[in-house]
């Protein structure tokens, strides 16, 4: 996998930044506009998939290797679990108590802001991290798998 021609490399080196920014936008504004953590995570993963397809596997190994992707996957899952558990410290008796938002609305009465939704943007971020890292990890495993190597040894 040495990558494609120079036209594809030049264009994708610009496009990948835009795709990554669009993924971050979709993720962070998921509670105000259409989108959310799932779509944002898939878009983030697709930017790295474009990088892998255009430049080959060696560039991806320097930027986001397999072990880092699996660590990010675990970090996203644990972050989402932590958000669900932190609400117990603020006096809730159930999962996913929206602890930031209760205090915020006591002081401000405004809606439609980025910070007005409490834990929802944090949950969106955790889900986007988890979905993006895991899907990119699957793509990396599928693309680096060479059929026939281990089977001959059995």
């Amino acid at each position: 996998m040495n990558g494609m021609t120079i036209i594809v490399k030049n264009i994708s080196s610009w496009i990948k930044i835009l795709i990554f920014l669009f993924g971050i936008y979709i993720t962070l504004f998921g509670h105000l506009t259409p989108g959310g953590g799932f779509a944002g995570g898939v878009i983030l993963a697709s930017s790295y998939i474009l990088l892998t397809l255009a430049f080959g596997k060696r560039v991806t190994d320097e930027n986001l290797p397999l072990w880092l992707a699996s660590r990010l996957d675990c970090i996203g899952a644990l972050l989402f679990l932590a958000i669900s558990l932190v609400g117990f410290l603020f006096g809730a008796s159930f999962f996913f108590y929206n602890f930031i938002q209760q205090k915020y609305l006591a002081q401000h009465a405004s809606d439609f802001h980025l910070v007005s939704a409490g834990t929802i943007p944090l949950s969106n971020f955790a889900i986007a991290l988890k979905v993006g890292a895991s899907l990119f990890m699957v793509f990396l495993v599928l693309s680096t798998f060479r059929p026939g190597e281990p089977a001959q040894q059995e």
């Binding site: 599928l142 798998f145 059929p147 026939g148 281990p150 089977a151």
Partner: peptide, 10 residues
């Protein structure tokens, strides 16, 4: 798909 690839390889 990974199950399919493993089966094909085997």
């Amino acid at each position: 798909v990974s199950i399919c690839i493993r089966t094909y390889q085997r």
